[in-house]
Structure formats: C-alpha cells, structure tokens
Design a protein around this nucleic acid. Structure first.
Length: 659
RNA sequence: GGCGGGAUAGCUCAGUUGGCUAGAGCACACGGUUCAUACCCGUGGUGUCAUGGGUUCAAAUCCCUUUCCCGCUACCA
C-alpha cells in the first residue's frame, strides 16, 4: 500500500495579551476547514496552533493584575484554547511558547545561529539615534551619522543581538522567484520583494534587555530572546525538532522528519514579512528546508469604527455562537471571507446570511424532504428506477461537485468551495419544484416515480452533507443522523445511488437552523454590549493602557538641553508630495518658525490655524520630504497611532516657556 | 515620494490567452407553488464595463492620459 501523503499546516500562534476576537478566531476556523478537507482526501494531516506568550506587554499586564506572568498567560492561553475548542477546530497540537521543550530548543537555535555568525552581538554605542529610536550598524552610518536624519548618533547603554539577513538574501530571492506559490496571495510577493529584499535587508534585532519575561539567552545573562526567533520556531519545536539532530519522538515516531517542511503556514497578512523573510533566513541558517507555502489571509473587520473593550462593541466568537450556534458562525466566517480583501462582520450581516443560506436553503430543504418522505412513503424512499430527464441534470451536478470543491480548496478559495457545496442544495430545491412530489403523492399510480424522486433527493443531500463536513462538521452529522445515512467517503463522491435501500428516515425532523428575527438579534447584541461595557467600563486596564518601550534614563542636564515653548500656528498648508505631512508657520515669541509634522491624517490645514501648541524649539533643523522643518510640535499618540496635539491647559501667549 | 493592485447592475463581486445580445449572489418588484422553517421555484436592469485617446476586423479584456480608491513602504524632528 502506498504511504499516505502528509500535510502539515500551522496557524500563527495567538498572542496571550487578551481574549481573541472574531477576527483571530477566523484564522483557526479557516485552518480547520482546510485541514479537515485534506483529511477527507486521505492525507496524513498534522495541524498545529497555539499561543505566543512572552514579551513586555504581558510582563506589565501581569504586574497590574498582581500575578506572575506565567499565571497570567496560563489563564489567557486556556481561554484561547477553549474558544478554539468551542469552534470545533481539530488541531493535533496546541503549542505554548512557555512549554519547556520549546524554550530549550529556542535557546539552542539561538546559540547555533550565534556560533555560526548568523547572529552577532551589536551595540548601541555610537550607533543609536535617540530621536529616531533606531540603532544602526557601523556600516549603515553615513559619515558616522544617522542615515535617516543625519544627526549624531548617541552612545547607548543597551547592547543587543542581531540576525544577519544579508547573508541569505540572494538565496531567498532565488527561492521566491523559482517557487511561484511560496507567497500567497501573489500580490504580496511583490511587496516583499520591492520593499525589503531588493533594496537590501536591514539586520533584525533579536534580543532585548529591557524586560525579563522571555526566553533567556543562556550564554549572556540579561538578554532575552525577542519575539521572532521565539515565536516562529514553534513551527519546528512543536514537531519535536532538536538542533543537534536528536529529535523528540511521539509515539515512537519522528514527527519532524515526517512532517517538515510545512505545507502551509496560514497567517494574517500583517505578519507576512516575518514569515516570508525572517523565518526562511532562520531556516537557512539551521540548514532546514523552507515551508512550501505561506498564505497571508485578509481579516474580518467590524464596521462600527474603532472597537474597544471599554465601549463593549467587540464581537467575540463565543457571543455569536451563543446566539447562532457553532456551525452557523463557522459558515459565516468562511463564507464571508473573500480571498484578498478584508471581510466584514456585523450582527446584521450574520443574521441575514444565516437566515438566507442556512435556514432557508439548507435547513428547509432537509426538513421538507424528510417530511415528504414520511408523509407519502412511510419514511422509506427507494429508487424504483422510474427516471426522467431532470434527474440526470441533478445527478451530474451532484456527482461532479466534489471536483469543483477540490479545485477551490487547492487554490485556498475556501469561500468559493462552500458556495460549490451549496449549489447542490439549491439544485435540490429546484428539483423539488420540477418534480412536484406533492402532486405525485396524490396519484397512487405515480408512487414509484415519487419514491425515486425522493430517493434522488436524499442521495443528493447525503452527498452535499458529506462535502460540507470540513466546514460544518456538526451539521453534517445532524443531517446524516436524520436521514439515517452513512457519510459518503471522498472516493465515492462521484457515484450516485449509495443510500442504502430500505433505510427509514427520522419521523421527527429537527430544525437544523432557526430563522432569527433581526430585531431580536440586535436586542441580544445590545445586551452583550452592555455586559461587556459594564465588565470593562470602570477599569482603566485592558485597551486603555499603553505601554511603550522604555528609553534609557536621562539626567536633568539632558532634559535642560531641550527648550520647549508655546507656539501659535498662524498658517498651515499640506506638503504636496507627502501623505502625512503638514507644514505650519508657528509664531514663537517674536519669531516665526516653519515646522513640518506628520499629522495630516488627523488635522486639516485650515483647522490648525490659531491653535496654541507646545513646540520643541531648539531641535536641529532638518528637511522632510524636501521641506525645511525647524522644530517639533508635541503630540500624544494612542495605541492605534492616532495623534492629538498637546495644548496649554490655560491660554498662554505664544513664546511662553514650558518648563 | 517609491513599488504594486483596483475602478463592471442599488450592494458584494466573477469575467481565463482580446471574439456570440457583459454575468453571479444579495436586495427589491411581480408571478407561480404549498411538501416545508411565511419556505421554495420562475421572471424582471436603458449597467456611458471610472476618464480621454490609441492599436485591432473586433477591447471590460492590450498600450498611453487624467481622476479617485486600496495595500506595502518611506517620511511622521
């Protein structure tokens, strides 16, 4: 017997800073549908997902909660896992980056790359540009100055490790060019090439000393492995990979040898860069083959603008499931998601989709078929061989559906694949109209024809239900149970007439999907919203807290070097060539300075005029997009990057010193 | 600013290498039907295929102009 072909799929691991919303959950469900389909096709599948649990944000959140970081991530990771379970995701492995075997291997990986020179120790000393918050290697400096702003770079206290990307860049470019399917969707490939690979890669900082909650660099105390080497490695450590070749075995099997390279890394489009550049470089450094495909999927968004926990308008999978049921939500997220563009999720859209597709088309079809079988045939439909032309049309569509579904799934067009399955159910409804069983039922002489018709229907529904399994596993089970049918194996999808003659359908058909009244749903949503707001409203934690990377301590002298004054904006215009810049004329005392700021998205030029703002005045002038800027307007920035100008709390004259 | 993608029915989008009266789903309207979860089936669009020009026997499809959107990236003193 030929050995089964293997298929290894991973999702990104979810960050354990909080409960995942419906968008995150989407990825797990999408992965699950792909994996279930592969299993149906007969592949030997491994599906890995999990949680990413290190980092400063978690360190701080756990402090606020008054518990250890480990206790904190144990809680969140458990919650994430329970939602994945609720959604019926059939993962084989749920990895946590705090798992001991993972941490140990990450240290070994780090050490190996270091000993090969792929990771090197860099220093901020003389290379750190404080205003740019960036560090540079000596080769990057221009005349010993910051290549970005041209100013002196400062000696800094931190030292850090860097991953040398340039060494493998050519190989990676070659690989991407010779493996067209490597990056999906294809349009993303250009972005990676044009923005990063072709212009030349900057080395990646892979360690931190500013926080402790991470995997320690075991040969250099105080350093902690920073996110990417830690997180990305999960794809191989989860298979038992060991740097020195002695891979861990599971059930006596070397999973790494069997499953690596991954067939598909399923990730959000926002982290494509890390998976298509840094991860391959790491793998090359380790001498391992690259994954076959990386798919950066779009996101499911909520359309009511900014979402935040304190407003209570975040849509969570478990809330939706409470109202609609697991499979309804699986259906919605899989069906609504196009291939390249972001999709939208709202309570209204979910309700419409479910009513129209699940309750009307599918649920009602199963229900009417069973009730007719009971009413006219005592629950037993058999093929009496009285065929008509319309039957063929139905059969052709039903028996060829699996091929269409397969094509769509191979191309990762999951939404289109579901549509192909539903084409069967729609065709069944039409078939009922064409054959008019209720008329056949009135004529005893047509009984054999009636039986054939209903048999054809049941057979078609069984086929459709079987094909539906990767997407809505519970529903498949429910339908088959009501029909007393066995699931059709994938190899038999092209055959018609496998429903066992003499089988009796249930005499009490259960409603598969209830129709929901939009008003009631919205009321329910409002309750959930209120409960969420109440739970989060009072506290300042969660979304309202922003933690940024701490900078080295400065002396009062350092502070004293900076001169702040109140300025009045007397004129302002857009910088034509730029997407973000406004150019303001700012009156400060008796002089007027021209200042360029990146706030076009948040302020219109007209509304700037007349504002009193805080200005850092003695900043060395620099050119931005070709326009001279002689200072800096102070702004506050929130977690989404929204900016607000800082203005004096009482009216103060232009030129007043800020001290 | 650089690179890339897009602009097709009220809405969401299909339209393969240029070729029959430009399509699907949803929504809406009307008609049919009654087995069924007021469900199902059918019918209905004068759409400047964003704009202006060009290549061609023939262009939504290829080339150039303009406008607007989106993604990544840079700049956000």
């Amino acid at each position: 017997m030929a050995e089964k072909k293997k298929f290894y799929l991973t999702t990104a691991i979810a960050y354990t800073s909080g409960k995942p919303h419906i968008g995150n959950t989407y990825e797990a469900v999408l992965a699950d549908s792909i994996v279930r389909f592969k299993r149906q096709q007969g592949y030997d599948v491994r599906f890995q997902t999990g949680t990413d649990e290190h980092g400063q944000k978690i360190e701080i959140k756990s402090q606020e909660a008054g518990i250890t970081p480990k206790q904190f991530v144990d809680g969140v990771s458990g919650e994430i896992k329970s939602i994945w379970d609720l959604m019926n995701t059939s993962y084989d492995k749920f990895i946590r980056t705090t798992d001991e075997y993972h941490e140990k291997q990450v240290q070994k990986i780090f050490k190996k790359l270091y000993s090969q020179g792929d990771i090197y120790k860099g220093f901020y000393e003389g290379m750190y540009c404080t205003p740019c918050e960036s560090f540079f290697t000596s080769s990057q400096l221009v005349d010993g100055k910051c290549p970005d702003c041209g100013r002196e770079c400062q000696p800094a206290k931190e030292e850090a490790y860097f991953l040398k990307l340039s060494k493998y860049a050519d190989r990676l470019i070659e690989h991407i060019n010779t493996h067209p399917g490597f990056i999906q969707p294809e349009s993303r490939k250009n972005e990676m090439m044009n923005n990063f690979l072709l212009p030349g890669l900057q080395d990646l900082c892979v360690s931190r000393t500013s926080f402790k909650w991470g995997i320690p660099v075991d040969f250099d105390e105080g350093h902690v492995v920073y996110v990417w080497i830690d997180a990305l490695s999960n794809y191989i450590t989860g298979l038992g990979y060991d740097v020195d070749g002695s891979n861990a075995l599971e059930g006596g099997e070397d999973l790494f040898a069997k499953f690596w390279p991954a067939d598909l890394h399923l990730i959000g489009k926002d982290i494509l860069r890390f998976h298509t550049i840094y991860w391959p470089v790491m793998l090359m450094g380790l001498g391992l083959p690259l994954p076959k495909q990386i798919f950066g999927h779009p996101w499911l968004l909520q359309n009511d603008g900014k979402m935040s926990k304190s407003k209570g308008n975040v849509i969570y999978a478990d809330d939706l499931v409470d109202v609609f049921g697991v499979d309804a939500i699986r259906y919605f997220v899989l069906h609504e998601m196009p291939y390249e563009n972001d999709g939208l999720v709202t309570w209204e859209l979910v309700t419409e989709r479910i009513n129209s597709d699940l309750a009307n088309t599918l649920g009602n079809l199963v229900n009417r078929t069973i009730s007719m079988t009971n009413k006219y045939l005592g629950g037993i439909a058999e093929d009496k061989g009285i065929q008509e032309d319309v039957d063929n049309e139905l059969k052709v569509l039903v028996t060829s559906a699996y091929k269409k579904v397969t094509d769509k799934m191979e191309a990762l067009r999951v939404a289109d694949a579901i549509t192909e399955v539903f084409a069967i159910f729609k065709r069944c409804n039409k078939y009922i109209d064409e054959t008019e069983p209720w008329i056949l039922g009135k004529d005893e002489s047509k009984k054999d024809r009636l039986s054939t018709v209903l048999y054809n229907l049941i057979e078609s529904i069984v086929t459709g239900a079987s094909l539906l399994e990767p997407f809505m596993p519970e529903t498949t089970g429910k339908i088959l149970t009501q029909l007393n049918a066995n699931k059709k194996s994938f190899g038999n999808m092209g055959q018609f007439g496998l429903y066992v003659p003499g089988t009796k359908v249930t005499d009490k058909p259960e409603i598969l999907f209830v129709r929901h009244d939009i008003k009631e749903v919205l009321e329910k949503a409002e309750e959930i919203r209120a409960a969420q707001a109440a739970a989060n409203g009072g506290s300042k934690e969660d979304e309202n807290v922003i933690d940024i990377e701490p900078k080295p301590e400065i002396t009062f002298d350092d502070f004293g070097k900076m001169q702040f004054q109140v300025g009045e904006i007397i004129a302002c215009e857009e910088v034509k060539k730029s997407k973000k810049l406004l150019c303001s004329q700012v009156k400060i005392g008796s002089q007027v300075k021209q200042i360029v700021s990146g706030i076009k998205q948040y302020y219109k030029a007209e509304e700037m005029v007349g504002k009193k703002v805080m200005v850092l005045v003695n900043l060395k002038p620099a050119k931005l997009a070709g326009v001279l800027s002689e200072g800096m307007l102070l702004c506050a920035e929130d977690a989404e990057g929204n900016l607000a100008l800082v203005t004096p709390e009482k009216d103060m004259p232009a030129g007043a010193e800020i001290c």
